[in-house]
Design a protein around this nucleic acid. Structure first.
Lengths: 225, 225
DNA sequence: ACACCATCTGAAGAAGTTTTGAAAATCATT
DNA sequence: AATGATTTTCAAAACTTCTTCAGATGGTGT
């Protein structure tokens, strides 16, 4: 979960930001002073910093410069009531990645944040199940560090099984995942399953198995050896 | 000198932009329509695109999407009189890097442009993928410190594959990169691929491979040996 | 143990995709 | 204009995937 630091002295704004970012799946922390923010940045790894400019103990622009001088390249977005061009230019020149004028819309803020925070969408994330990994983007599957090559349907089945991390997957479940209009011979899945098992067996022996649960479906599991 | 494309139908604005960007050391080109812009993007390597949304033959947002779908990651900044949050959000979600509401200050525009434009143009930078290096300016390719000589198309294909660093590149992607008006026999790419593979094999054996991903495209990868 | 159903497996074929080499066309350079 | 390099076309062969099917195997309840 990406972590965002909010540097802002208005508790009202901080509250709204925290609430909204939390709902969007971010973890948040906040500081009301430059001093405190600097300490927190030293102690934590943030994925992004939202920063006001007018702070009780100095200017956010100076803090931004200090952060860049220290060599950190964490994305920084200014949120400021100072809307004049000169300040915006100074802000960005100080090393910030973006500058939003107050008042700003929360949707706009979120979409701008997302540009900087790499949140790999769930269906692009590498799936792991013990020593099995599936990279859905590269379409690479490894078992115990060995690559196996799978057909599209086989990959989809294995992905489904791995996602359920050992829970039972029904045949119907598989059918729905593989086909939109399920009008086909219902032993086809068995066939894929057989091919898939064979390929797994060839690299993993009996360590990784697709066990069938009679009358219910399938389950992926690692066996101790 | 970094090249900027201005997509804008108001000649007044275009004129001011061109003048100012020129003074800041940019080369500029401009289009007044989506159609023309799309052609120019296909024929040139721009370092950044400034784009209006309301254009005579369509929406800049659609053009932006089209550019991203074609696989190009050139920075895009929207400049639009549409100032409502919903449009801004749509614009950025369509793949743009920034969005400035009209009227905007020229200093602010320039400082925002500078965030995205590296003074060394990205398409002139040396590309590395493991022990493969491509110098797009000198047109020199080395694999494991050995130079190989490639035809123009072969070079372009390898460059595309290397830039994607192991991710899948579709045949369509390759076609878009190689040709402006893709009206040619669609097995041509395969032919180039075959030649390219042969040349790579001669110096790298099986270490560096272009694997094909059935039904999807190609992927460049290093094999441990 | 038996009948009954569920599941496994490998063979075969259909449909589609990719590879390859040869030949023709084009391009670049002398 | 001649030469060699590069690009494109083409068609046959090779390959990978998906599906169907039939016979074998396995699990469950009586």
């Amino acid at each position: 979960m990406p972590k965002i630091l909010i540097v802002e002295d208005d508790p009202q704004i901080t509250k709204i930001l925290k609430l909204n970012l939390k709902l969007s799946g971010f973890e948040t922390d906040n500081s009301t002073t430059i001093q405190d923010a600097w300490n927190k940045i030293g102690q934590n790894e943030f994925d992004l910093i939202l920063m006001d400019i007018g702070l009780p103990d100095g200017s956010g622009i100076d803090l931004c410069k200090k952060i860049r001088e220290s060599g950190k390249d964490v994305p920084i977005i200014f949120l400021s009531a100072l809307t004049d061009e000169a300040t915006v230019v100074k802000g960005i020149k100080s090393g910030a990645d973006d500058y939003l004028r107050k008042p700003f819309g929360l949707e706009e803020l979120k979409v701008r944040i997302n540009k900087f925070v790499k949140r790999i969408s769930p269906h692009k994330q590498i799936i792991k199940f013990g020593e099995l990994t599936i990279d859905p983007v590269k379409r690479v599957v490894t078992i115990m560090d060995k690559i196996i090559s799978l057909g599209r349907k086989e990959l989809e089945i294995l992905t489904l099984l791995a996602k359920k991390s050992g829970d039972i997957v029904t045949r119907e479940n598989i059918l729905n995942t593989l086909y939109d209009n399920a009008e086909l011979y219902d032993r086809t899945v068995d066939s894929h399953m057989s091919h898939l098992r064979k390929k797994i067996r060839e690299v993993a022996g009996q360590s990784l198995q697709i066990s069938s649960v009679y009358g219910l479906g399938y389950r992926l599991e690692w066996k101790a050896r």
